[in-house]
Lab assay of single mutants.
Amino acid sequence: NITNLCPFDEVFNATRFASVYAWNRKRISNCVADYSVLYNFAPFFAFKCYGVSPTKLNDLCFTNVYADSFVIRGNEVSQIAPGQTGNIADYNYKLPDDFTGCVIAWNSNKLDSKVGGNYNYLYRLFRKSNLKPFERDISTEIYQAGNKPCNGVAGFNCYFPLRSYGFRPTYGVGHQPYRVVVLSFELLHAPATVCGPKKST
């Protein structure tokens, strides 16, 4: 009989979020998941679920829940969905086509923008091939755009693969920082350890 609540607040209220190319993952297990707390949290810009209804989450049990978190621009949030393409979905964070879970995003301009620009948040701009679902690539190898080998030196046709967002408070909404948490639900042939409040007695 599990009684402790799942530590969703640790994920959602973290002081610093990860850059999207180096997205953070927390495994959540052996706890009671009260999703209504999240669902009623006012400032969400997006709360979209795939393969599961957000209002039914509290009735369900899962083997594991993974909480992935990172920061992207407002106009990139739409790429955090199954079957998407674009710089983020291709080179930074890719969801599987059969994704079961929820994508939760909110504007973090007050936290993550600075006058003069916040350059701490990076994304991958160049990559030889697209990421596989949930693949994480933190390499900083110089990207070779031409035929000539770069030998690890940036220059003509040789690019550092990461780019900084440089968030400023005055940017338009599409270019403002958004914090994103992706909850993915794993249902294995194993005992369920993460259940909603109704199922955990």
Rank of each mutant, 00 (worst) to 15 (best):
N1D: 09
N1E: 10
I2T: 13
T3M: 07
T3L: 06
T3C: 05
N4Q: 14
L5E: 12
C6Y: 04
F8P: 03
D9N: 14
E10V: 07
E10P: 03
V11C: 03
F12Y: 03
A14G: 05
A14K: 09
A14V: 05
A14H: 05
T15C: 01
A18L: 03
A18V: 05
A18K: 07
V20F: 01
N24E: 15
N24G: 07
N24R: 15
R27Q: 11
I28F: 15
S29M: 08
S29T: 13
A33L: 12
A33M: 12
A33Q: 07
D34G: 02
Y35P: 08
S36R: 12
V37N: 11
V37K: 14
L38W: 05
L38R: 02
A42T: 07
F45K: 15
A46V: 15
K48G: 03
K48C: 06
C49W: 08
V52Q: 03
T55E: 15
L57T: 04
N64K: 10
N64A: 15
V65K: 01
V65Q: 02
A67R: 01
S69V: 02
F70D: 02
V71F: 00
I72N: 01
E76L: 01
V77D: 02
S78Y: 07
S78D: 14
N87M: 15
A89V: 05
A89E: 01
A89C: 04
D90S: 09
Y91S: 05
N92I: 01
N92Q: 02
N92C: 02
K94C: 03
P96F: 00
P96T: 03
P96Y: 00
P96L: 00
D97H: 10
F99R: 00
V103K: 00
V103D: 00
V103T: 01
I104L: 10
A105E: 02
A105G: 02
A105M: 06
W106G: 00
S108F: 02
L111V: 14
G117V: 08
G117I: 06
N118Q: 11
Y119V: 13
N120Y: 08
N120Q: 14
N120T: 11
Y121P: 06
Y121S: 06
L122V: 13
L122M: 15
L125N: 15
F126V: 13
K128R: 12
N130D: 10
N130E: 12
L131F: 03
L131H: 02
R136C: 06
D137A: 03
S139Y: 04
S139E: 10
S139D: 10
Y143K: 07
Q144T: 10
P149A: 13
P149C: 09
N151S: 13
G152T: 09
V153F: 11
V153H: 14
G155P: 09
G155M: 08
G155S: 11
F156R: 15
N157D: 15
N157M: 10
C158D: 06
C158E: 07
F160Q: 15
P161D: 06
L162D: 04
L162Y: 03
R163M: 11
S164Q: 10
F167N: 05
R168T: 11
P169T: 09
P169R: 08
G172Q: 14
G172V: 12
G174C: 07
G174R: 11
H175L: 11
H175F: 13
Q176W: 01
P177L: 05
Y178E: 02
Y178Q: 04
V180T: 03
S184F: 08
F185K: 00
L188A: 15
A190G: 15
P191Q: 11
P191M: 07
T193N: 13
V194W: 09
V194L: 10
G196T: 11
K198L: 12
K198R: 13
K199P: 13
K199H: 12
S200G: 14
S200N: 12
T201L: 13
